[in-house]
């Protein structure tokens, strides 16, 4: 067992699944000899050849549309979009077709495809390289949206996504692609989809987040723990459908909840969680639910990027506000 990064865990999961299922094919731009711009498909071409690792022409709608056709033939395409900001041309295919083909044919055809993309801000990339568009896809019935936050969860959730019989949007937090290493055993064991992960237990406040911000939130939880405040940290992991039961169970215990996300706030996944809490957990709540989000602005260019992303101080301020609410 080796210590690997999140992006290496992606490669490991792809290689594992390509080895054990010949229907798994990866496709995308620069994913062959180049191994992907983040090297997520590094080495796959050498091992599995150009008929399993398809360098496509440069057209994102095409990558999605091809995947739908291949998936309808029983293949399991794992498509890479180079950045989440380039997935928009593919939304017609993903939302109008991938998400609907099973339903509109009453199960005759289906789309067991995975649409992967590096996601989120924080690497000082050019514009259009740092968005967090998970809510756009979470709002589309028929899709699953998954965002891992560690090498082990990237490995297990990607395996689960490839094996899932329905289309999965798999967003990879690029800021933590190489931030931490973790022991990941290549044992082919998938982690459950549609399940949130409780990363630390606590009675005082529920902190819900996903993606790269799990790391800031973990550090915050540790800091509060030293002051005697016990925060329950939930990594949402599957963004759609939301595992609201896990959140509700936690809030029944804590009565207080802060949601932290990179995406703009209005109509966000955090908004959905807050609405569910208001609808279903009102009597458990001892304080208003607070969302800490990116601003409702265009993702700024790199100089203001850090000012946009929820900072440790901003998250802490909201936690304090909710903890102090009487």
């Amino acid at each position: 067992m080796a210590e690997i990064t999140l992006v290496e865990a992606i490669t490991l999961a792809l290689a594992h699944e390509m080895k054990q299922d010949k229907d798994v094919v990866v496709l995308g731009e620069d994913i062959g000899a180049n191994g992907g711009v983040f090297r997520a498909t590094d080495g796959l071409l050498e091992t599995y050849g150009p008929e399993r690792v398809l360098d496509t022409p440069l057209a994102e709608a095409m990558i999605a549309g091809l995947s739908i056709g291949m998936a309808a033939q029983g293949m399991k395409p794992v498509a890479e979009f180079q950045f989440e900001g380039f997935i928009y041309p593919a939304m017609n295919q993903i939302c109008n077709h991938a998400a609907r083909i099973r339903n509109r044919t009453r199960g005759r055809l289906s789309c067991p495809a995975v649409f992967r993309a590096p996601w989120g801000g924080g690497i000082h990339a050019p514009e259009h390289h740092s968005d967090s568009p998970e809510a756009l896809f979470a709002h589309t019935p028929g899709l699953r949206v998954v965002i891992p936050s560690s090498p082990a969860r990237a490995y297990g959730l990607l395996l689960a996504s490839i094996r899932d019989p329905d289309p999965v949007i798999f967003f990879e937090p690029k800021r933590i692609y190489r931030l931490v290493k973790q022991n990941v055993e290549d044992n082919g064991e998938a982690l459950p989809l549609d399940r949130a992960f409780v990363l630390s237990e606590g009675d005082d406040l529920t902190l819900v987040t996903w993606g790269a911000l799990v790391h800031e939130c973990s550090a915050i939880v540790n800091a509060y723990h030293k002051q005697g405040v016990n925060i329950e940290l939930i990594d949402l992991a599957t963004i759609s459908p939301i595992d609201f039961d896990t959140i509700a169970e936690s809030v029944a215990k804590t009565g207080r909840c802060v949601i932290v996300q990179e995406a703009p706030q209005t109509c966000s996944v955090g908004s959905e969680i807050a609405a569910c809490l208001a609808e279903q957990c009102l009597t458990d709540l001892e304080a208003p639910v607070v969302r800490v989000s990116g601003y409702d602005t265009v993702m700024p260019f790199l100089k203001l990027e850090k000012s946009y992303l929820p900072s440790v101080d901003r998250i802490k301020a909201s936690i304090d506000e909710v903890l102090e609410y009487a």
Binding site: N96, R106, L109
Partner: peptide
């Protein structure tokens, strides 16, 4: 759209031209 005959054929595509890419994907699999 649940054709009892040609089980692999796609149903009518209303979003214009999108079907051309599905056809290319099926042809890729073939």
């Amino acid at each position: 759209c649940d054709y009892q005959g040609p089980k692999e054929d796609f149903p009518i595509s209303v979003p214009i031209a999108t079907q051309c890419l599905h056809a290319a994907g099926i042809a890729t699999a073939i």
